Amino acid sequence: MHQIHLLTQRYFSVAAALVAVVLWSAAPLLSEQARGLAPLPLAAFTLLAGALATLPLSRRQPTGHLSLRWRLAIWMGLPLLTTGAVSSYFLGMRLAPASDAALITYTWPVLFILLSQWLTFGRVRFASVLGALIAFAGAALLMAPEAGRSSESSLIGYGFAALAAVCWALYSWLCQATPVTLTPLMPRILLIASVVTAAAFVPFAEGHIALPDNTTLLAGLAIGLGPFGIAMVAWDKALRLGKASVIGSLAYGVPVLAAAFLVLAGMSVLDWRLPIAGALVVGGCLQASRR
């Protein structure tokens, strides 16, 4: 009976991770539809929508028994990492080609593996270092100047995409390390992140905020409900119930799916660098997760 329960948990964790992967893959396409709103207001709006989307899953879960360090990590660290990840992601998508920025952002699984190994065992395996070098070579291929394509704006966008990757890696590790499940706390975490993001935008608002059109509003709402709402809950469940190596490896398909969605929608041009970079990123992540 216990083995059946473990097997059910394993399949459920994989299914939850796949839900998150598909929703995350749709995020670049939806963010292109939401260009009518500046990156920081868009981030604040999507995080608010995510908080509302996860509200039915919320229940009171006391955290007072946790040490001060863990309470700060949950109520300050996670919202700040979420703010950094989502805001940097949208900034990267605006300043650099969307498919390139998405691919760079989704080098975070290999960063997650390196971080987990270092903090758990105090060392990083050679296979993981080699995988990281391969994955980062794919990201570097996109950032290499070619016929004036990589402008100064694009390079800044690549930097924001890399920052988003670091934030997502730290966020995933913290989600896995916390001694309590985060699903009941997710609405409050996302709401705090939304408030922080909105506050960060206020100095740049110059006294007015333009109302978004219907397309932008619907796209932003879809991002909040899906990639930054349901997907984050599904990912937390997957990390809690499944093996980190298996669950992390499923995230490697996100940049490939995201690029495919953008190309199929006619919002990105498929040149020779994108598939090669995608293969390097996915191959590097697989190499890094080898036992």
Rank of each mutant, 00 (worst) to 15 (best):
L280F: 06
L170S: 10
E146W: 11
L155D: 00
L81A: 04
L130T: 14
A20T: 05
V129M: 13
P255H: 12
L141S: 12
V281D: 04
S25Y: 01
L42D: 01
Y89W: 15
A200K: 03
T197S: 08
A231N: 01
A164L: 04
P145Q: 08
R59K: 03
L57P: 09
P62F: 08
T105L: 10
G266D: 05
G207T: 09
L190C: 07
G284S: 11
R71D: 05
E32S: 13
F45A: 15
S194Y: 04
K243D: 15
R188M: 10
L174F: 08
W173M: 12
R273M: 01
G159F: 12
L270V: 06
I209Y: 12
A53H: 13
P56Y: 05
L37Q: 12
V282D: 00
M186T: 14
I134Y: 01
R123P: 07
V202I: 09
M267S: 07
G50Q: 10
V282S: 01
M186S: 12
F45N: 05
A200F: 03
G248Y: 00
L163A: 14
V124C: 09
L42R: 07
A26F: 13
S31I: 13
R35T: 14
D236Y: 09
A244E: 11
V86H: 04
L72W: 15
S154T: 10
P41H: 02
F136A: 02
A15L: 03
S151P: 15
K237N: 05
V110M: 00
L66A: 04
G284E: 11
I223K: 02
T63C: 14
S99N: 05
Q33C: 05
S88G: 07
L217G: 10
V269Y: 11
T216Y: 13
G224Y: 13
L81C: 09
A101K: 01
P179L: 03
W24Q: 00
A244M: 15
W24E: 01
G64N: 11
F201D: 11
R290S: 06
P97V: 13
S116I: 07
L91G: 02
L239S: 00
A277D: 04
